[in-house]
Design a protein around this nucleic acid. Structure first.
Lengths: 143, 143
DNA sequence: CTGCCACTTCAAGCCGACTTGAGGTCAAGT
DNA sequence: ACTTGACCTCAAGTCGGCTTGAAGTGGCAG
């Protein structure tokens, strides 16, 4: 009896059962059967969930992630896609770094108002021009 | 007649008029009057919008941004808040960097399946453990 | 055998940041 | 004076990723 019920998967993955049902509905994971009404999962689902978590953290949407698995369930990850995402992350990192430096400067800047600080103003203009496209929404984190 | 109507502000800020109305409703910007029904804005609103863009790019929510302005409209930016956000960005940057390096490695890794690559596996585990909290949603960008 | 309660389904709700649509107003050009 | 069409308001819709709630089911301890 190595199969896991949804509560066991939830416990071991840290994800709520509702999320697991949602992922199954979206085709991200599959249960291998039922005991009565209750889903049973192969322990391998945990690895799959880890892979999903990684992809999510990298900024892939659930739909994109679903497309990364062959119909038979084996991950079919495109190295080009990974490289492209790495590039994207790289741009994001550069933007965020500029932002961080600017914020830090502004926090320390002695100018009476940030609006009079040239560094701050340059940053503002860049943001206004859409040069800085940083923000994404964080994945809600269990506190 | 230096006052700007909403179309002029939209043109000069790059934001749709609907967004400007929404921002006004949220108290992020204020019109200085009307000509008939039409809002008139002080040109200073452009600077304010740039400031808002910067704050958004830094990851502040509209509500947080609204709280950064005194009732009289002058920005009342807390240097501590800026420093805290800089710290947060720093953590995000570190996470994203690890992710980027991992993706890049995986893209180049000769292992038959990524699942057999130790680097990839470590990354997966970190993501699953929530160690990597990276993703945020991007701010929609005019292409 | 009974009762409990963790599981099930399905539909609806939530969040943030806007966008869209219907229906109305009015300043300005002809 | 009339038409035009850019602006107005207000309500509702969108998107992604889930969560929540009501109502139902059934495995297992007692």
């Amino acid at each position: 009896m190595q199969d896991l019920d949804i509560a066991a998967v939830a416990r071991r993955s840290g994800l709520p059962a509702s999320t697991l049902r949602y992922y199954e509905e979206k085709g991200l994971i599959a249960s291998i059967g039922r005991r009565g009404l209750r889903r049973l999962f192969d322990p391998g689902v945990l690895e799959r969930l880890a892979l999903i978590a990684l992809a999510r953290a990298s900024g892939f949407s659930l739909d994109e992630i679903a497309a990364m698995f062959a119909p038979d369930g084996t991950p079919r990850i495109d190295r080009q896609q990974l490289a492209a995402k790495a590039e994207e992350l790289d741009r994001t990192i550069r933007d965020l770094s500029a932002l961080r430096d600017g914020l830090r400067h502004a926090a320390a800047c002695p100018a009476p108002s940030h609006l009079e600080c040239p560094t701050f103003r340059r940053l503002m203009q860049a943001a206004a021009a859409g040069t800085i496209r940083a923000p994404r929404r964080r994945v809600p984190q269990p506190d």
